[in-house]
Amino acid sequence: MEDDQMAEHQIGDYVKGKKFGSFEHDFEGEIEKVYENAVLIHILSFDNEDRILVGELNNRAIVRKGDATPAKVKAE
């Protein structure tokens, strides 16, 4: 079942990424690249406590596919 979920990730999908490493909170963004077991997320929404880290990462993070779940895009 998880393999089916992982196969659904596509470039342009808006997802929520689980906190990892130095992140204090989960974050959200758009998938820029899909790898075999991970995705590259362009981080668009994050907690202010993670502001410096997100800047150091150039607003991008590589996340395991299982840790990237669909998220609703915030109304602008």
Rank of each mutant, 00 (worst) to 15 (best):
E2I: 13
M6E: 08
A7C: 07
A7R: 15
E8F: 10
E8M: 15
H9F: 03
Q10V: 08
D13S: 01
D13L: 04
Y14T: 01
Y14W: 07
V15K: 06
K16A: 12
K16H: 06
K16W: 03
G17L: 10
G17I: 10
G17H: 11
G17E: 08
F20V: 08
F23H: 01
E24P: 01
H25G: 01
F27K: 04
E28M: 13
G29N: 05
I31R: 12
I31K: 14
E32K: 10
K33L: 15
K33Y: 11
K33W: 10
A38I: 01
A38K: 10
L40C: 12
I41D: 02
H42I: 02
I43Q: 05
I43A: 09
S45L: 11
F46S: 03
F46L: 00
D47R: 00
N48R: 01
L53Y: 05
V54R: 03
E56L: 12
L57R: 13
N59D: 13
A61G: 13
I62P: 02
I62K: 13
V63P: 02
G66N: 09
G66I: 00
D67L: 12
D67T: 03
A68K: 03
T69D: 07
P70D: 05
P70E: 04
P70A: 04
K72Y: 03
K72N: 08
V73F: 09
V73M: 12
K74D: 00
A75W: 04
A75Q: 13
E76L: 04
